[in-house]
């Protein structure tokens, strides 16, 4: 049975490359945190960047998002889903952050608000 020609170069080499890259990206992220190379916002950005990089690696090498049969539909639906995921996560963080801020549940928040308003 010839299945080989259906797949986009799904060879041992491509799986091995994907695997090696993923290990490298994982260890890099781990090292960034344990060796305290970066902190705060920059660390968040770097970690997310490394995660996204590994996502792309795995989508390409493991999930064969570049293959000819069905590849376009896969990519299109994946990009739409990615956008939805961003809306759900970022949207929630943005909205809930604002709601929590307005709750003024932390001590001194009311004071800060009044000071900020000044002309209130």
């Amino acid at each position: 049975m010839e299945h080989a020609e259906h797949k986009q170069q799904a060879t041992l080499k491509s799986y091995a490359i994907g695997f090696a890259l993923s290990i490298a990206l994982t260890l890099a992220a781990y090292g960034l945190v344990t060796e305290r190379v970066l902190v705060g916002g920059t660390l968040v950005a770097a970690l997310l960047g490394l995660a996204v990089a590994q996502l792309v690696v795995q989508m390409w090498f493991f999930l064969h998002i570049g293959e000819e049969t069905g590849g376009r539909l896969k990519l299109a639906t994946f990009l739409v889903t990615l956008m939805l995921v961003l809306i759900v996560v970022a949207g929630s963080i943005w909205i809930m952050g604002h709601l929590n801020y307005q709750m003024m549940s932390s001590p001194g928040a009311m004071q800060k608000y009044i000071e900020g308003q000044q002309a209130f």
């Binding site: 994982t26 992220a29 705060g40 968040v44 970690l47 490394l50 995660a51 493991f62 999930l63």
Partner: peptide
């Protein structure tokens, strides 16, 4: 494979980012 991809983000957001 998809479960491994989700885990990448789990590992990053839950575990690694706990040390921000």
């Amino acid at each position: 494979h998809f479960l491994d991809i989700v885990w990448i983000f789990l590992f990053t957001v839950v575990y690694l980012m706990s040390r921000i």
